[in-house]
Simulated scan of single mutants.
Amino acid sequence: MSRIALLALLFATPVLAEEVNVYSHRQPELIQPLIDQFTAETGITVNLAFVDKGMAERLKAEGSRSPADLVLTVDIGRLMELVGADVLQPVDDPVLEANIPAEFRDPGDLWFGLTSRSRVVYASKDRVKPGEVTTYEDLADPKWKGRICVRSGLNDYNVALVAAYSLHHDAAETKAWVEGLKANLARKPQGGDRDQAKAIWAGECDIALGNTYYMGQMLADPEQKDWAEAVNVVFPTFEGDGSHMNISGMALTKSAPNKEAALKLMEWLSSDEAQKIYAETNHEFPVKPGVERSALVASWGDFTPDTLSLADIAAARPAAVKLIEEVDFDN
């Protein structure tokens, strides 16, 4: 074959575009701005599949045939489920190590935090005075009897909070606290975090547990704005420590057919640019040092994060679930 013919053949052969397949616990609209910007900058297509439940089981069933390269989750418990299912592979990457602090990374490099959030108290502006609730321990005080709303005790976020409580207190104290919290409920646990703010607005209760970022989502929704404006965000602490934290995170699957492109996405998600977009879009706290919180999130005030290891909290979750079921919290 002549040189000219060879060159013609090379130029005629289509170049396969890079792509990344992502399984996400997060609603697509919450991360689409990130995906769009990444694709615009790199030309890499991101195929996003929303997997609300059963991600670990799905990846395990798919095995080496799984198309998923990367997973995005909303809770440390979900990440640890994936670790336990043995469907992830470690990522030894200097960029991720430099951008994401050690407390937001798995010691074995199987998962990496992207944003953090705190489990806070929504407190009625009209019926709760500043300083009335300052600790998680306060929530079991009889003065709140009939005044607290909460979603299911078995929700991932509440399980993580109980798990964290159990690491700050002994078993008897933790059980007494869960029972005390249940005794103070104004109604049966139900709905999501936004529903608890709505209940406060409607006068059904005075305080509730919720994640910080839901406040931003409600303020951006004309139908829910009044709910958010009816409450103050209070950062309670564990006595002698800080406010309970959780993360959204990412991990590389064991199958990862597009590993190189997936690593580019992971690195980009940890960058200043992506962390800022994430913070502005989802009203969460960036994990990369030096990236500022959004103006709205900053307006809720400063707080001291709890010092517990996320891995330790995840390890305490099974016992927390057992306790929540034992006290029949949701009934």
Results as ranks from 00 to 15, higher is better:
172 A>P: 03
162 V>H: 02
190 Q>D: 14
166 S>C: 06
163 A>K: 03
172 A>I: 07
177 W>M: 05
184 N>Y: 10
184 N>D: 12
171 A>Q: 10
161 L>W: 04
181 L>I: 13
177 W>D: 00
170 D>S: 07
195 D>N: 10
166 S>T: 05
190 Q>E: 14
162 V>D: 00
163 A>G: 07
185 L>T: 11
168 H>W: 04
181 L>V: 14
195 D>P: 02
161 L>G: 01
167 L>V: 03
189 P>M: 14
197 A>N: 09
188 K>S: 15
174 T>A: 05
169 H>Q: 10
183 A>C: 10
177 W>E: 01
173 E>S: 11
165 Y>G: 01
165 Y>F: 10
170 D>Y: 09
187 R>T: 14
167 L>A: 04
192 G>P: 02
191 G>I: 05
192 G>E: 10
165 Y>S: 00
188 K>T: 15
160 A>I: 04
160 A>Q: 03
185 L>G: 09
192 G>L: 11
179 E>V: 08
195 D>L: 07
183 A>N: 11
185 L>W: 12
176 A>P: 03
185 L>Q: 12
180 G>V: 12
170 D>I: 06
174 T>L: 06
176 A>Y: 03
188 K>I: 14
163 A>T: 05
189 P>D: 14
178 V>R: 01
194 R>N: 05
161 L>K: 06
164 A>P: 00
187 R>G: 15
183 A>D: 09
191 G>P: 03
181 L>E: 02
193 D>M: 09
173 E>A: 12
171 A>N: 07
169 H>M: 08
196 Q>R: 11
195 D>G: 09
176 A>T: 07
175 K>R: 15
165 Y>A: 01
164 A>H: 00
184 N>I: 07
196 Q>D: 10
170 D>V: 08
182 K>M: 14
191 G>Y: 02
180 G>I: 12
192 G>K: 07
186 A>Y: 11
191 G>M: 06
193 D>F: 09
173 E>W: 04
194 R>L: 05
160 A>L: 04
182 K>L: 14
177 W>P: 01
179 E>P: 04
177 W>S: 01
193 D>R: 05
181 L>F: 13
179 E>S: 11
195 D>M: 08
164 A>R: 01
180 G>A: 13
177 W>H: 03
190 Q>H: 11
178 V>M: 03
195 D>W: 02
161 L>N: 04
171 A>C: 06
161 L>M: 13
164 A>T: 00
183 A>H: 10
189 P>S: 13
175 K>H: 04
196 Q>M: 15
179 E>L: 10
197 A>H: 07
192 G>I: 08
161 L>F: 05
172 A>W: 05
161 L>R: 03
177 W>K: 03
